[in-house]
């Protein structure tokens, strides 16, 4: 038996296929989920992939938040279902308030696409146990609305509780406060980050590194104890 990891497709999602492939390479079964379907098909975890759901109209993630599938995701995430939001998925998670803060236009106003070094700050979440705290990884980053923002009190709370999961290294790419690239909720089951681990899972592609695979092997290990 293996774990079933759902990958949601919204209209405008781009990285659902890469994410499904990454889930499969990690040894889990990828289950495609459709935004209009409330049914999560009894998956053990859910990934919200990157892209431009609903064209990023209004604000990135603002309309996806009200899609039927998200009703169930929000309900089950609060009950402990592991959820990973990548890029646009992270934006959706902040819009739903499953994660605190909000994403804004990059401070330099440009779309950015590059390999990005990150430091893993928290290796205890459902999605990061295969890393070690302080480990440095490199995965692609590609977005225009990547500036993480929250008020000072929220930022202090995130830091104090160890809920900053990833921080940017080699310069802040977008003006994110405190170099935050990814965060988790208090329970550690919901994680969101701007960079794209699903694009760094095969040595033949991109950086030649497979640093992104750890996200998917982490969740598999958590779910089946493999």
């Amino acid at each position: 038996m293996t774990a079933r990891v759902g990958v949601i497709t919204f209209p405008g999602t781009l990285d659902d296929r890469d994410t499904q492939r990454a889930v499969g390479l990690a040894g889990a079964e990828a289950v495609p989920l459709w935004h209009r379907d409330k049914d999560l098909k009894q998956v053990d975890a859910v990934v919200l992939p990157g892209g431009f759901s609903y064209g990023d109209y209004l604000r990135a993630g603002a309309i996806s938040r009200f899609s039927p599938v998200m009703e169930t995701v929000i309900e089950q995430a609060k009950a402990g279902l592991p959820v990973l939001g990548i890029c646009n998925g992270f934006q959706v998670l902040t819009e739903t308030h499953l994660l605190p803060g909000a994403m804004l236009r990059n401070n330099h106003l440009h779309f950015i696409c590059r390999d990005q070094r990150l430091r893993v700050e928290n290796a205890n979440t459902a999605w990061t146990t295969e890393f070690s705290a302080g480990q440095e990884i490199s995965v692609p980053l590609k977005n225009i609305d990547g500036r993480y923002t929250a008020d000072e009190r929220t930022l202090d709370e995130l830091e104090a509780e160890g809920r900053v999961v990833f921080r940017y290294l080699d310069g802040n790419p977008n003006g994110s406060l405190r170099d935050i690239a990814g965060i988790t909720n208090a329970a550690g089951n919901v994680v969101g980050l701007m960079p794209h681990p699903e694009h760094a899972v095969e040595p033949l592609i991109g950086t030649g590194r497979t640093d992104g695979l750890g996200f998917f092997t982490s969740i598999l290990k958590k779910l089946v104890g493999a």
Binding site: L58, R59, E95, P100, A102, L104, A150
Partner: peptide, 8 residues
Amino acid sequence: TFLANTVI
């Protein structure tokens, strides 16, 4: 709830 994100 929708037109504005009152976090920002």
